[in-house]
């Protein structure tokens, strides 16, 4: 059994490889990751928000913003471990080159997922930076949004990676982004509360990982965290572990014949 420190160091070296290739194009990449959620924030929060009264006792923009942090973390990580990782694995053969060094498949996968989560964190931090002067953060607890954003990035990074391992070509990401990511974006309580809808919708939404991320995000920014929410945290942790385990297994099967 290899020591944990060796494994962490291996994953970090893969993370550094991604950082190194990203930093030369950091600005272009940031615009893609951050600009879209900010535009949503402005258009929905202030545009649509003018026609909506309060939701759950808060102005619409305050209701929407934490949801957008969660969905932005989801999108940033999902893009990275689907299109990004697929390219590195199949087009560029970067994974192949790396696993011929002392780095293992598990470390390559972990490094790419941590990289995806870092992009989530960066995008989430930018949105948070806009929320602060607008008075959309209720208290110091809101700082915990950052580690949560990173955790949400890991979860969706792992999910994207597992899908990448079984995707025959880029075209197959259409299924993933429409039927998985797209559904979650719209039906996980980012734009409207789920409790006013028919009960089966809320019941179904409970199985979507983004739902739990949104609940926790909103609790942190509005200062309404409750002890009962450990269930949401545990749900996310369990899903993340399962997705990570699956992604390592599937990528290893695809890479090592």
């Amino acid at each position: 059994m290899t020591q944990l420190t060796t494994r962490v160091a291996g994953a970090f070296r893969v993370w550094l490889r991604n950082f190194e290739s990203w930093k030369d194009f950091a600005v272009a990449s940031l615009v893609g990751t951050v600009a879209e959620p900010l535009l949503f924030f402005a258009a929905m929060g202030f545009g649509l928000g003018r026609f909506v009264d309060e939701i759950q006792g808060q102005p619409y923009v305050a209701f929407l913003a934490p949801g957008l942090v969660a969905s932005t973390a989801m999108n940033a990580a999902s893009f990275e471990t689907t299109f990004g990782s697929f390219t590195r694995m199949n087009e560029q053969r970067t994974y192949e080159a790396i696993v011929m060094t002392p780095i293992s498949v598990g470390e390559v996968v972990a490094g790419d997922i941590l990289w995806a989560a870092s992009k989530s964190l960066l995008a989430g931090a930018v949105i948070l930076a806009f929320m602060l002067p607008l008075g959309l953060l209720a208290g110091p607890l809101a700082a915990a949004v950052l580690p949560l954003t990173f955790a949400v990035g890991i979860m969706f990074g792992a999910l994207g990676m597992a899908y990448t391992a079984i995707a025959p070509s880029y075209t197959f990401f259409n299924y993933f982004f429409t039927l998985v990511i797209g559904v979650m974006f719209l039906f996980s309580g980012v734009f409207f509360p789920l409790d006013g809808l028919p009960s089966w919708v809320g019941w179904a939404a409970w199985f979507l990982p983004l739902t739990h991320a949104v609940i926790l995000m909103r609790a942190l920014t509005s200062g309404t965290l409750e002890p009962s929410m450990w269930v949401n945290g545990a749900w996310l942790a369990a899903f993340t572990l399962a997705a990570f385990w699956l992604s390592v297994r599937l990528i290893r099967r695809r890479l090592i014949r």
């Binding site: 070296r13 490889r17 560029q92 053969r93 970067t94 080159a97 790396i98």
Partner: peptide
């Protein structure tokens, strides 16, 4: 097959690869 890292320069290909070995 060529599996050099197309996202990196010539020198960085060597440096980053060397880092995989610690």
């Amino acid at each position: 097959e060529n599996n050099l890292d197309p996202d990196l320069t010539v020198l960085k290909n060597l440096l980053v690869y060397g880092r995989y070995f610690g």
